[in-house]
């Protein structure tokens, strides 16, 4: 506890801003792999193949789900780093 940065309101705001920035970036990816790749671009991406599947179909039934899992673990890892930097590790 003694090594922890002195906690100030400015610190809290900086921490929150960086958190929001990470959330924004990750949610943009979340929307791109599901709503854009599997719904809006369903027809254009249909002609491209991934393995034996049309690319949009792969995003719709496999890819988006796998990327969702990755996004959460990436967020966990980024927040672990941020918490450590601000001395907020539990």
């Amino acid at each position: 506890m003694s090594e922890q940065k002195e906690w100030t309101r400015a610190n809290a705001e900086a921490y929150w801003k960086r958190n929001i920035r990470m959330i924004t970036v990750l949610l943009i990816i979340w929307g791109l792999v599901s709503y854009v790749a599997a719904i809006f671009l369903a027809q254009p991406l249909y002609t491209i193949k991934l393995g034996q599947l049309p690319l949009s179909f792969w995003f719709a039934q496999q890819g988006s789900i796998l990327i969702f899992v990755l996004l959460i673990f990436v967020y966990c890892w980024l927040m672990d780093r941020l918490d450590r930097e601000y001395g907020l590790s539990e």
């Binding site: 949610l27 599901s34 599997a38 719709a60 966990c76």
Partner: peptide, 16 residues
């Protein structure tokens, strides 16, 4: 895909 994405994507919202 409505069920596959719809019933998994919410966990990203929950986590973040």
């Amino acid at each position: 895909a409505i069920y596959l994405m719809g019933w998994t994507g919410g966990y990203v919202l929950l986590a973040l």
